[in-house]
Write a protein that binds this DNA or RNA. Structure first.
Lengths: 88, 88
DNA sequence: TAGATGTTTAGGCAATTGTCTAAATGGTTA
DNA sequence: TAACCATTTAGACAATTGCCTAAACATCTA
């Protein structure tokens, strides 16, 4: 849960997720959307990978990144506990 | 959205939210649950307040903190966009 | 008004984070 | 194999974060 919020706590990483929501993309294609160096994007992708929010699959020279939707449910679940009316 | 994830990206702050889910509490009562100085807890509360995740209402010397449930929906809404099947 | 209690503000410090450039790794193709 | 392209790793640096102690502020009560 901590890794998840850490990964989500950055505008660039959230933008990457929104990009991947539209279409799976290679690391380079992702980087092309930002005014940030490729190594930095690579680092962001690593953090997203560790949080299991994205998955990277190598295909030749390219590594194609895509969302791992299931993990989002975990965060949603944590947040949902506050919306139920089980106050003491 | 940025302030929200920033506020949520800390174990102590998330624990404070879980405490307040059970019962509204004063700043001092909240601090008593942690092995952290009161000023530090006060600072955490300030961050939660800025994110509008909690509300503090003074009652005499005490300030009673409670959750502002509505804001949680904003985060849930952002996360939900990834679970729909509107991929291109 | 003093003194006591609850909370926040101020200032400082170590750890973490996001960025960069340079160099290394993995894979393709001539 | 050599040149090339895609990506990551390494190392450095400034900005941010979370913690602390000391001091200030706010409120109540004697």
């Amino acid at each position: 849960m901590n890794n998840l919020f850490k990964a989500l706590n950055d505008p660039t990483r959230r933008a990457i997720l929104e990009l991947l929501k539209e279409e799976d993309q290679s690391a380079g294609a992702i980087a092309a959307h930002f005014d940030i160096s490729k190594p930095s994007i690579s680092h962001h992708l690593d953090i997203l990978k560790r949080a299991e929010l994205v998955v990277g699959i190598r295909s030749g020279q390219f590594i194609h990144y895509s969302l791992n939707m299931t993990v989002f449910d975990e965060v949603i679940g944590w947040l949902m506990q506050f919306n139920s009316n089980n106050k003491k």
